[in-house]
């Protein structure tokens, strides 16, 4: 499969001397749904800024579908749609005009631009708001407008920088479905998010960036395999006064109806349920204490912190 994005030895040092990127190598395959994660200040937004020509790189190369950022910036920009973290449209312009104007910047004729604007406003549930100034929209609507704007020129690679930040759960899930459908249609998607559940649900591959370096770049499945232990919370039918004796498992009673159990990957869950059944303890439901990816993310970032304490 060909490469949608190829980054080699990308560096960025800001004018105040801060080195945001220290030689990043990253490849994203065509058709992928890729998560780019990292703590605040890790270099995610700088990387996206360079890709979208809003930040000048200090060194290295970037190409999108074979279009080099230095040699063919216009070709690269035509393949790329960017949904930024911050709202960045004209507050006084009508939302329909924002989309048609953006299409015009890509050389799309007005008639086609109007048809596309209508299509995406319907798709993202904004058609009824088409004649309103963008400042009148709610936060969730503004996020959807930015997605529509990024898609108006039919990009092959869509980059979303925290697209669901501050969005309610219902809308977040409808945006997830929309993004999954776009990916099914063949659009390569790169997503940054602080909701690790979102990354785990949507993305097939993952890159973790910290202190300006890629500290992990693998498939979601491979990454989750690294998790040796998971912590589950069991909701119990009857109340427990004392901690049950579960051999091979570390347990803790959070309250008289909730049991926390640490399960090693090698041991599995069957033995746990067998022992619980033997003791007459009925389990109503079970859930992860924290998101699996979150646990891994924290451990990776912490281990990197020890290596590079800058």
């Amino acid at each position: 499969m060909s490469s949608a994005l190829s980054i080699r030895q990308l560096t960025k040092t800001y004018s105040n001397g801060f080195q945001a990127l220290k030689g990043i190598d990253l490849d994203v395959a065509e058709g992928d749904f890729f998560a780019l994660l990292g703590p605040n200040g890790a270099g995610k937004s700088t990387t996206i800024g360079i890709l979208s020509s809003l930040v000048n790189k200090s060194g290295g190369t970037v190409s999108v579908f074979g279009h080099d950022l230095d040699r063919d910036p216009a070709g690269l920009k035509r393949c790329l749609g960017v949904v930024p973290q911050e709202f960045n449209f004209n507050q006084f312009e009508k939302i329909f005009d924002i989309l048609v104007t953006q299409a015009g910047y890509y050389g799309i004729l007005p008639k086609v631009a109007r048809e596309r604007a209508e299509y995406y406003l319907h798709q993202l549930g904004l058609w009824d708001k088409r004649d309103e100034a963008s400042r009148m929209l709610s936060g969730g609507m503004k996020r959807r407008l930015m997605i529509a704007r990024a898609l108006i020129h039919h990009p092959r690679l869509l980059i979303l920088d925290e697209p669901t930040a501050g969005v309610d759960i219902e809308l977040r899930r409808s945006m997830w479905n929309f993004l999954i459908e776009l990916n099914r249609q063949g659009i390569t998607i790169i997503l940054t998010t602080h909701y690790l559940e979102e990354a785990e649900q949507l993305c097939r591959n993952i890159g973790i960036i910290d202190h300006g370096r890629i500290v992990e770049n693998t498939s979601m499945r491979e990454l989750l395999k690294q998790l040796h232990e998971e912590v589950f919370l069991l909701d119990l039918q009857q109340s427990l006064r004392s901690l049950p004796d579960l051999r091979g498992y570390r347990t803790q009673l959070l309250d008289d109806h909730t049991l926390e159990v640490q399960v090693e990957k090698s041991r599995g869950m069957n033995e746990l349920f067998r022992q619980l059944a033997e003791q007459g303890i009925e389990v109503l439901s079970l859930r992860n204490k924290t998101n699996r990816l979150e646990e891994l993310f924290v451990s990776l970032v912490e281990s990197n912190l020890h290596k590079d304490p800058e």
Binding site: S52, S53, A74, K77, R78, L80, P84, Q102, Y106, G107
Partner: peptide, 17 residues
């Protein structure tokens, strides 16, 4: 004004020369 509102980014991300 488009610099201040950051809507200049609409132009900078596009292939306009």
């Amino acid at each position: 004004s488009i610099k201040f509102q950051r809507s200049i980014e609409e132009l900078l991300v596009s292939p306009v020369s």
